[in-house]
């Protein structure tokens, strides 16, 4: 099997790779958002502590 055949997906490339691509994006976003929110929240708490000290 060569790479060209693999990417062509027997003529269904658009549907197959669109499905896989969208899934990847959604799954990555669902990890990144809570991690980013937590980092931002911890920073807020730290800043508040510094101000009160």
């Amino acid at each position: 099997m060569n790479w060209q055949d693999f990417w062509a997906m027997g003529g269904y490339a658009f549907y197959v790779w669109m499905a896989y691509g969208l899934t990847l994006v959604i799954l990555v976003i669902n990890i990144v958002i809570p991690v980013w929110q937590r980092k931002r929240f911890i920073q807020q708490i730290r800043n508040r502590q510094k101000r009160s000290n």
Partner: peptide
């Protein structure tokens, strides 16, 4: 029947 489209 469905070729490679079934890989979804």
């Amino acid at each position: 029947q469905q070729g490679d489209s079934y890989r979804i």
